[in-house]
Design a binder for these strands. Sequence first.
DNA 1: CCAATTACGAAACTGTAGTTGCGTAATTCT
DNA 2: AGAATTACGCAACTACAGTTTCGTAATTGG
Lengths: 199, 199
Amino acid sequence: MVPRGRPRDTQVDERVLRIATALMLERGYTGLSIDELAEQAGVAKTTLYRRWPTKDHLAVAVVARLQADDEITDTGDIRADLVNYLEKIAAGLNRMRAAGQRQGPSAGAVGELVAAAARHEDIGRLTREQYAKRNAVALALIERARLRGELRADLDAEALFDQMAGALYYRVMITGAPVDRAYAERLVSSALEGSLTCQ
Amino acid sequence: MVPRGRPRDTQVDERVLRIATALMLERGYTGLSIDELAEQAGVAKTTLYRRWPTKDHLAVAVVARLQADDEITDTGDIRADLVNYLEKIAAGLNRMRAAGQRQGPSAGAVGELVAAAARHEDIGRLTREQYAKRNAVALALIERARLRGELRADLDAEALFDQMAGALYYRVMITGAPVDRAYAERLVSSALEGSLTCQ
DNA sequence: CCAATTACGAAACTGTAGTTGCGTAATTCT
DNA sequence: AGAATTACGCAACTACAGTTTCGTAATTGG
């Protein structure tokens, strides 16, 4: 199945995304102008819109490149594995956080991502699929730890992971508090050990 | 301190926000046109911009009206109090969720709020203050439960609340999963009881 | 070689957020 | 009463996202 007409210039995608990333890191989403981007990349606006139907789609592509691949490790020590995984997620969030307005604590590009997902059905579907995949990997890790007796048999794996990942996003997007390895450790401890006096 | 010049027409704020809310619920943030809003409200665009410096500021004002007052109850049963509080937060989120694109699961106006906070320093500061206030109330509730022995003495109250509130926001903004009373109960159980086999 | 097909660039165009300038209305202070 | 001050409406303006049109370039298939 060779495509019919003139092939796309594959160098364009890479070059545009590189320049767009630089511009977004420098001036944030609002400060990124499509006209300027096209000029700096040396292409016509029509060429950009053939690849990304809206500025939101382009921004999502930029943000996607900032996210880590987030590979999970399974050492048999669920506490250490969870801390490591959360730390990787936090690192990706902090990288996205930088791509926004310069001043103060801000969600940066994470906020743009959520807004874009809310505005465009296709972006929403895409990100939900992406996160479903990540969720599945984490749930499998938790399930293995449960089966080998590290975790209680009746635990709510979904709630457990939502709690930990959610707290990271909540801090970045809502309260503006920092997320780092120390916080990841606090989260895992709190989630695993619970808060009741005894049971 | 009586203000000097011509006083503002106080009816304008209410009327504009009412119409803006209706338009946003009907067509979402993108579908809300300032020119159209001004015309429907019977005011000039300059009058709108005197009150809300950007469309984002206006949208935030609209969303703020959709949030519940989220009063907290302290019955002495920390589990029930937490579930009730989380359910109130979830109700506000679901109301904001409606104010976005019609189709499918979407963060709706919650996403716009986060993006607006990232884009405008003043909005970011405002929302962070708002959430700091809410956080303080919840932390006080947890602290009282800890002091009367319902919760373990060495618990991490901040992590505990981040986990529960964060999971709600995570679902609404990222995974698109539903948030309701049943989920609030799962969250509280999971957070309070922990996931380890024994301690 | 030639037709069909797709990509590209250039330029004009539309719609909307946000600004500016100006005349006028409503209020306070002296 | 009159000056200073702030709000309002109106209309023209700028900037930018996104579209459209058209001429041209690169490729496949017959």
